[in-house]
Amino acid sequence: MNTTVNANSKAAIPPISLTRDHWGRLVFVSADETPISNIILTPLFPISEPGRWISITASDGREVACIENPADYPIELQQLLREELALRDFVPRIQRVLFVSGNTEPCEWHVLTNHGETKFVLKSEEDIRRLSPFEVMIVDSNGGRYRIDDTRTLDRKSRRHIEWYV
Protein backbone atom coordinates (compact mmCIF):
# COMPACT_ATOMS: atom_id res chain seq x y z
CA MET A 1 0.00 0.00 0.00
CA ASN A 2 2.58 2.52 1.11
CA THR A 3 4.66 1.94 -1.93
CA THR A 4 1.82 2.89 -4.22
CA VAL A 5 0.72 5.99 -2.38
CA ASN A 6 4.15 7.43 -1.84
CA ALA A 7 4.75 7.62 -5.53
CA ASN A 8 8.23 7.67 -6.92
CA SER A 9 8.95 11.34 -6.44
CA LYS A 10 12.59 10.77 -5.60
CA ALA A 11 13.12 7.53 -7.45
CA ALA A 12 15.10 7.56 -10.66
CA ILE A 13 13.04 9.16 -13.37
CA PRO A 14 12.69 6.89 -16.38
CA PRO A 15 13.63 8.63 -19.61
CA ILE A 16 10.74 9.49 -21.84
CA SER A 17 11.02 9.44 -25.57
CA LEU A 18 8.56 11.72 -27.24
CA THR A 19 9.01 12.91 -30.80
CA ARG A 20 7.01 14.40 -33.61
CA ASP A 21 6.49 12.42 -36.79
CA HIS A 22 6.19 13.77 -40.33
CA TRP A 23 2.51 14.48 -39.90
CA GLY A 24 3.21 16.56 -36.85
CA ARG A 25 1.73 14.01 -34.50
CA LEU A 26 3.43 12.94 -31.30
CA VAL A 27 5.05 9.54 -31.11
CA PHE A 28 5.96 7.85 -27.87
CA VAL A 29 8.46 5.07 -27.77
CA SER A 30 7.99 2.77 -24.83
CA ALA A 31 10.64 0.87 -22.95
CA ASP A 32 10.35 -2.16 -25.24
CA GLU A 33 10.84 0.21 -28.17
CA THR A 34 7.35 -0.06 -29.65
CA PRO A 35 6.40 3.30 -31.06
CA ILE A 36 2.93 4.53 -30.27
CA SER A 37 1.72 7.32 -32.50
CA ASN A 38 -1.20 9.75 -32.11
CA ILE A 39 -0.19 10.55 -28.57
CA ILE A 40 -2.35 12.98 -26.61
CA LEU A 41 -1.03 15.05 -23.75
CA THR A 42 -3.44 15.57 -20.88
CA PRO A 43 -2.65 17.74 -17.89
CA LEU A 44 -4.07 16.01 -14.79
CA PHE A 45 -4.47 19.25 -12.87
CA PRO A 46 -5.08 21.77 -15.64
CA ILE A 47 -6.43 24.37 -13.26
CA SER A 48 -4.59 23.99 -10.02
CA GLU A 49 -1.21 23.04 -11.46
CA PRO A 50 -1.25 23.38 -15.25
CA GLY A 51 2.51 23.09 -15.82
CA ARG A 52 3.03 19.76 -14.10
CA TRP A 53 1.42 16.32 -13.98
CA ILE A 54 1.13 15.71 -17.68
CA SER A 55 -0.27 12.39 -18.71
CA ILE A 56 0.91 10.86 -21.98
CA THR A 57 -2.07 9.04 -23.36
CA ALA A 58 -2.49 6.81 -26.35
CA SER A 59 -5.37 7.51 -28.72
CA ASP A 60 -7.50 4.81 -27.05
CA GLY A 61 -7.35 6.70 -23.74
CA ARG A 62 -4.76 4.41 -22.19
CA GLU A 63 -2.08 6.17 -20.19
CA VAL A 64 1.40 5.13 -21.28
CA ALA A 65 3.43 7.41 -19.06
CA CYS A 66 3.07 10.36 -16.78
CA ILE A 67 5.35 13.34 -16.39
CA GLU A 68 5.15 14.68 -12.89
CA ASN A 69 7.52 17.54 -13.34
CA PRO A 70 8.69 18.54 -16.83
CA ALA A 71 11.69 20.28 -15.30
CA ASP A 72 13.17 16.84 -14.61
CA TYR A 73 13.46 16.17 -18.34
CA PRO A 74 15.68 17.45 -21.16
CA ILE A 75 15.01 20.91 -22.44
CA GLU A 76 13.85 19.66 -25.85
CA LEU A 77 11.11 17.58 -24.26
CA GLN A 78 10.00 20.54 -22.16
CA GLN A 79 9.82 22.64 -25.30
CA LEU A 80 7.73 20.01 -27.04
CA LEU A 81 5.38 19.74 -24.10
CA ARG A 82 4.94 23.50 -23.97
CA GLU A 83 4.14 23.73 -27.67
CA GLU A 84 1.68 20.90 -27.54
CA LEU A 85 -0.08 22.04 -24.38
CA ALA A 86 -0.35 25.60 -25.65
CA LEU A 87 -2.40 24.29 -28.57
CA ARG A 88 -4.43 22.00 -26.39
CA ASP A 89 -5.84 24.60 -24.08
CA PHE A 90 -7.18 27.84 -25.40
CA VAL A 91 -7.99 29.84 -22.32
CA PRO A 92 -7.74 33.58 -22.99
CA ARG A 93 -6.81 35.76 -20.05
CA ILE A 94 -9.28 38.57 -19.50
CA GLN A 95 -7.54 41.90 -19.07
CA ARG A 96 -10.48 44.24 -19.05
CA VAL A 97 -14.25 43.94 -18.99
CA LEU A 98 -15.56 46.43 -21.52
CA PHE A 99 -19.30 45.96 -21.23
CA VAL A 100 -21.80 43.73 -19.44
CA SER A 101 -25.39 43.77 -20.65
CA GLY A 102 -26.96 43.41 -17.22
CA ASN A 103 -26.84 41.93 -13.78
CA THR A 104 -29.16 39.03 -14.50
CA GLU A 105 -28.04 35.99 -16.43
CA PRO A 106 -27.93 35.24 -19.24
CA CYS A 107 -25.97 38.36 -20.03
CA GLU A 108 -23.51 39.35 -22.69
CA TRP A 109 -19.95 40.28 -21.83
CA HIS A 110 -17.54 42.22 -24.01
CA VAL A 111 -14.00 41.66 -22.83
CA LEU A 112 -10.45 42.43 -23.79
CA THR A 113 -8.21 39.37 -23.52
CA ASN A 114 -4.58 38.67 -24.21
CA HIS A 115 -5.78 37.24 -27.52
CA GLY A 116 -7.75 40.35 -28.41
CA GLU A 117 -11.27 41.59 -27.98
CA THR A 118 -14.20 39.19 -27.83
CA LYS A 119 -17.69 38.78 -26.51
CA PHE A 120 -19.52 35.89 -24.96
CA VAL A 121 -22.74 35.01 -23.19
CA LEU A 122 -22.67 34.06 -19.53
CA LYS A 123 -25.35 31.48 -18.84
CA SER A 124 -25.56 31.39 -15.08
CA GLU A 125 -23.74 32.78 -12.11
CA GLU A 126 -22.28 29.36 -11.38
CA ASP A 127 -20.19 29.69 -14.51
CA ILE A 128 -17.96 32.22 -12.82
CA ARG A 129 -15.78 30.37 -10.40
CA ARG A 130 -13.12 31.49 -8.01
CA LEU A 131 -10.07 29.25 -8.18
CA SER A 132 -8.04 30.95 -5.50
CA PRO A 133 -8.56 34.27 -3.70
CA PHE A 134 -7.67 36.32 -6.77
CA GLU A 135 -7.95 33.82 -9.58
CA VAL A 136 -11.19 33.54 -11.49
CA MET A 137 -12.39 31.27 -14.26
CA ILE A 138 -15.36 32.01 -16.50
CA VAL A 139 -17.12 29.46 -18.68
CA ASP A 140 -19.31 30.89 -21.43
CA SER A 141 -22.51 29.45 -22.82
CA ASN A 142 -20.59 27.42 -25.41
CA GLY A 143 -18.21 25.91 -22.90
CA GLY A 144 -15.36 28.26 -23.84
CA ARG A 145 -13.13 29.29 -21.00
CA TYR A 146 -11.60 32.54 -19.87
CA ARG A 147 -9.37 33.21 -16.95
CA ILE A 148 -8.29 36.10 -14.81
CA ASP A 149 -4.99 35.39 -13.10
CA ASP A 150 -5.19 38.17 -10.57
CA THR A 151 -8.32 40.24 -10.11
CA ARG A 152 -6.31 42.92 -8.33
CA THR A 153 -4.64 43.87 -11.60
CA LEU A 154 -7.97 44.72 -13.23
CA ASP A 155 -9.30 48.24 -13.31
CA ARG A 156 -12.07 49.28 -10.90
CA LYS A 157 -14.93 48.89 -13.33
CA SER A 158 -13.89 45.44 -14.53
CA ARG A 159 -13.32 44.29 -11.00
CA ARG A 160 -16.79 45.39 -9.96
CA HIS A 161 -18.33 43.26 -12.69
CA ILE A 162 -16.38 40.21 -11.57
CA GLU A 163 -16.96 40.77 -7.88
CA TRP A 164 -20.67 40.90 -8.46
CA TYR A 165 -20.38 37.16 -8.93
CA VAL A 166 -17.54 35.94 -6.75
Partner: peptide
Protein backbone atom coordinates in the same frame (compact mmCIF):
# COMPACT_ATOMS: atom_id res chain seq x y z
CA UNK B 1 -2.98 10.21 -8.26
CA UNK B 2 -1.55 7.00 -6.81
CA UNK B 3 -4.77 6.31 -4.89
CA UNK B 4 -6.87 6.98 -7.97
CA UNK B 5 -4.69 4.63 -10.02
CA UNK B 6 -5.03 1.92 -7.41
CA UNK B 7 -8.80 2.40 -7.38
CA UNK B 8 -8.91 2.11 -11.19
CA UNK B 9 -10.21 5.66 -11.37
CA UNK B 10 -7.26 7.28 -13.08
CA UNK B 11 -8.24 6.39 -16.64
CA UNK B 12 -11.69 7.90 -16.59
CA UNK B 13 -10.51 10.96 -14.68
CA UNK B 14 -8.01 11.49 -17.47
CA UNK B 15 -10.81 11.70 -19.98
CA UNK B 16 -12.63 14.47 -18.14
CA UNK B 17 -12.04 17.96 -19.48
CA UNK B 18 -10.30 19.21 -16.37
CA UNK B 19 -8.76 15.96 -15.18
CA UNK B 20 -8.41 15.92 -11.43
CA UNK B 21 -9.62 19.51 -11.29
Amino acid sequence: VAAARAARAHDFILRLADGYD
